[in-house]
C-alpha cells in the first residue's frame, strides 16, 4: 500500500511529468511562463484544483452515473477553479492580474480532466490525492523551470515575489527579449523537451 502510494506520488515528478512527458496542459505552459513567479503561481493554483477535484471525484465515484460523469467532473472542477480565482483576487491581486484569463481556463486543462477520468474515478481517495499532489507538483516544477529558463535568458535576472533579483547575470550577459515573447515559449519548451528525451533515453 505505502509502496504504491509513493509510486503514484512520484510518477508525476518524472515519469509522467505533465508538460514534458505527457505533453498536456500546454496552453498555460506556453502562455504564463514569462517568469518563475508566474509559473509557480499557475502551478500552485492548478495543484490545488487537482488535489481537491481528485479527492471529491474519488469519493463520489460510486455515486456519479457513468453517462453524465464528464458533466459532474466539470461542475466539481469549475467549483474549485472559481474558489482559487476568488482567493487569488483577495490575497495575491498582482499575481491574479498577471495570470488573468489563464486561471479560469484551468477548468478545461487536459491535465485536470485527464486525472479525473483516468485515475480518480477508478481509485480510492488516498491514492487519488497522492496522484493529484504528484502531478500538481510536477506541473509546478515544470512551469517554474521553463519560467526560469525564459526569464534568465530574456531578462537577465530572476525575481520572485518582488524585491531584489535572486539571480542577476545582466552584468556580463546581454538578455534577448525574444525569450520572454510568445515565440520564445515554443523555443524554450522544445529545447527542454529535447533535453528530457536525451536524459530519459534508454
Amino acid at each position: 500500500m505505502a509502496q504504491s502510494l509513493a509510486k503514484e506520488f512520484t510518477k508525476g515528478l518524472w515519469a509522467e511529468i505533465p508538460p514534458f512527458r505527457l505533453v498536456l496542459g500546454l496552453c498555460p505552459t506556453l502562455a504564463v511562463t514569462k517568469s518563475v513567479e508566474n509559473g509557480i503561481g499557475m502551478g500552485l493554483a492548478t495543484t490545488f484544483v487537482l488535489v481537491f477535484s481528485n479527492l471529491l471525484i474519488s469519493l463520489l465515484r460510486s455515486v456519479i452515473p457513468a453517462k453524465v460523469r464528464i458533466a459532474c467532473y466539470i461542475v466539481i472542477i469549475a467549483t474549485f477553479v472559481t474558489i482559487v480565482e476568488l482567493v487569488m483576487q483577495a490575497f495575491t491581486y498582482p499575481l491574479f492580474l498577471k495570470l488573468g484569463i489563464f486561471i479560469p481556463l484551468i477548468v478545461v486543462n487536459c491535465i485536470v480532466l485527464g486525472r479525473a477520468e483516468a485515475f480518480a474515478s477508478k481509485n480510492n481517495p488516498v491514492m487519488a490525492v497522492a496522484d493529484g499532489l504528484g502531478i500538481g507538483i510536477g506541473f509546478t516544477l515544470s512551469l517554474a523551470s521553463l519560467g526560469a529558463v525564459r526569464e534568465i535568458l530574456g531578462a537577465g535576472t530572476i525575481t520572485i515575489w518582488g524585491g531584489n533579483p535572486v539571480l542577476d547575470i545582466s552584468t556580463w550577459y546581454q538578455p534577448f527579449a525574444y525569450m520572454v515573447e510568445a515565440p520564445g515559449a515554443f523555443a524554450a519548451l522544445g529545447l527542454m523537451l529535447a533535453g528530457m528525451n536525451l536524459i530519459g533515453k534508454k
Partner: peptide, 29 residues
C-alpha cells in the same frame, strides 16, 4: 432519475459553496 438527482445535487452544493466563498472574499477583493 439518478442522473438528474446527482447532477442537480452537485450543482446546488457547488452554487452554495461558491456563494459562501464569494461573500467571504468580497470585501477584501
Amino acid at each position: 432519475l439518478s442522473m438528474i438527482v446527482v447532477l442537480t445535487l452537485l450543482a446546488s452544493v457547488s452554487g452554495g459553496l461558491l456563494a459562501a466563498v464569494k461573500s467571504g472574499t468580497e470585501l477584501r477583493i
